[in-house]
Design a protein around this nucleic acid. Structure first.
Lengths: 237, 237
DNA sequence: CATAAAACCTGACATAAGTCAATTAATTCA
DNA sequence: TGAATTAATTGACTTATGTCAGGTTTTATG
């Protein structure tokens, strides 16, 4: 039984429901209703800061539209991007269980729409509905693995390897992997990608140049076409 | 009400109970009993491999004694240490909720004693006892933060900074921080520490040398005395 | 205890990738 | 649309840290 009451008022012209969010996918209509009743839809124009490290923790978000950059700035002003959140991903859910303030910064790098779920209401819900904890545990586990991967890449892989791996990952997410000419569209600035991959923008720039010179990729504006996915896969490992 | 029935048979001469394990600290005696009934105590001599990446997942561990290295080996044979587990830490609990095989390798680097909790029994328990999920979520959250920290350090900090930070962390754990001369005892080989900090052993060696030349630390066998904790703190940030 | 095997240290060297600076390209918005 | 801002590219240069190789010290074991 699928609940098609739209989550979002008409003027957003949105076509998703709570059921599209993995975290909530298997809840009953009852449970979904209680989530809707405590949560709030929020719109963030490009460049909006959602929260900063140290801000009082109020609740977490599920992204419905747009892209959110979750990052940390160190004393010297250098940015480390820990997570590039895309639709249906949850973020800032970790502090639900640890600490009273946001441990990271988050910024909308596209016009974004997110569901805000306040801590209080959600904790009530979770205590009544143990099924939710299990889904959260699964979600945490998945992201844990991703983070472990990121860490491993960072310490054991060189710049071109990391870039190749990132490109492949994006190609897979784009669904064009098996097309004659797979491609990806960059929705985030290169500076964000480089901060995510733990390198200088210059290094990213130069390496993409090199890949292009070697006919592995072809860059056209914000699109990157993959000419030689085999070589790219070689490079990624 | 504290349950002092020893967890471990006498011949282990151990003096801890399930209550000492954060994950289980707030469970009722009933619940503790059911954990004991499904779990199993295992002894691992130094250098034993507990499991390897890809092994069928059977359950997780709580370390009671010794030190376990959790790591990943890449194609080129390079090791990344993700976690140095010390007593009362849980490990290999993530795959409870994700995937059917161990995603990492684990090895005892000291004679170790661990409680093994099989997946089946534990999942039954968790479904009956929602309180446990919440504690697990809290545990995951904490380790998530630690991992984020590790990642951030790796990308934004240089070798001496990372070493300084590690030393401080160990000093805190040692409980000697406020002594006139705080010190730590190295229980893991330097090669493990360097793999954990994402650097070559040679770099670790050289930097400790440098710290010593600058009178920040004094190395004596397996002990490192901190002469100038202030400088070390400076370096760590 | 002696010998083998690990673990650790040290120096010389190579190089990947960071930094700085200047230029060009792409966006933004008045 | 066009000036102003921001993002990306490119080249020249520096340097931190990895790699390799040799030696020393420590630990393990028959």
């Amino acid at each position: 039984m699928k609940d098609r009451n739209p989550l979002v008022p008409n003027y957003f012209k949105s076509e998703f429901t709570l059921r599209d969010i993995p975290l909530f996918a298997e809840l009953s209509i009852q449970q979904l209703r209680s989530i809707t009743s405590v949560s709030e839809l929020k719109h963030f124009p490009k460049h909006t800061i959602l929260f900063r490290e140290g801000d009082l923790y109020l609740g977490f978000y599920v992204l419905l539209k747009g892209v959110i950059k979750v990052f940390k700035v160190n004393k010297q002003g250098k940015e480390t991007v820990l997570h590039i959140v895309r639709p249906f991903g949850a973020f800032a859910d970790i502090p639900l269980f640890e600490g009273g303030s946001y441990p990271l910064d988050a910024e909308a790098i596209e016009d974004s729409l997110a569901l805000f779920i306040p801590k209080e209401g959600f904790m009530d819900l979770i205590s009544k509905e143990p099924e939710i904890s299990l889904r959260m545990l699964a979600g945490f586990a998945k992201r844990f693995k991703a983070l472990v991967n990121q860490l491993e890449d960072m310490t054991s892989k060189e710049v071109p390897n990391r870039i190749a791996k990132y490109l492949l990952q994006r190609v897979r997410a784009s669904g064009t992997e098996n097309l004659p000419e797979p491609f990806i569209k960059l929705t985030v600035p290169k500076s964000t990608i480089s901060a995510y991959l733990g390198m200088a923008t210059e290094s990213l720039s130069r390496t993409l140049r090199k890949f292009q010179d070697e006919n592995i990729i072809r860059v056209s504006g914000k699109k990157i076409f993959i000419n030689d996915i085999k070589r790219l896969k070689e490079l990624a490992k």
